[in-house]
């Protein structure tokens, strides 16, 4: 199983807050709506979003999200990173749009699960 570290390396993600980066990633959930992530994401998924505010960390921690990828070149707010460090949540950023990142990640996870 690919770890957060593997994925960060392969997709050139910028690690902004380092939680447990050796955690395995089971899948991915994409949403910009916190209530949607609360309702529908699963344990150990990566979460791809363009939201940058601190509540992202709260939701990730509650839902057991492996890591958060913020897309489209956006940067997390300072409070978000502070909170991520406190909650041991990994935050990464990417210049890719959500669609492109999802496409690349989908391919990566599919191939990893086939092997």
């Amino acid at each position: 199983m690919l770890t957060i570290n593997d994925i960060a390396e392969k997709l050139g993600l910028d690690l902004k807050a380092k939680g447990d980066v050796h955690k395995g990633v089971t899948g991915c959930y994409i949403s910009d709506l916190l209530s949607d992530v609360m309702a529908n994401s699963k344990d150990h998924e990566l979460w791809v979003t363009l939201q940058t505010h601190p509540n992202v960390v709260a939701v990730a921690a509650i839902k057991g999200i492996s890591g958060v990828i913020i897309t489209n070149g956006r940067s997390p707010e300072a409070d978000t990173l502070k909170r991520a460090a406190a909650e041991n949540v990994t935050i990464m950023t990417s210049p890719y749009s959500t669609f492109e990142l999802a496409g690349l990640l989908y391919n990566l996870l599919k191939n990893a699960n086939v092997k």
Partner: peptide, 22 residues
């Protein structure tokens, strides 16, 4: 289907992203 799967499938078909200004 979830958003992730939808994106993965459409991307694999060669569709592009709306953002090209990076």
């Amino acid at each position: 289907l979830p958003m992730f799967t939808v994106c993965g499938m459409l991307y694999a078909k060669g569709l592009k992203s709306c953002v090209n200004g990076r």
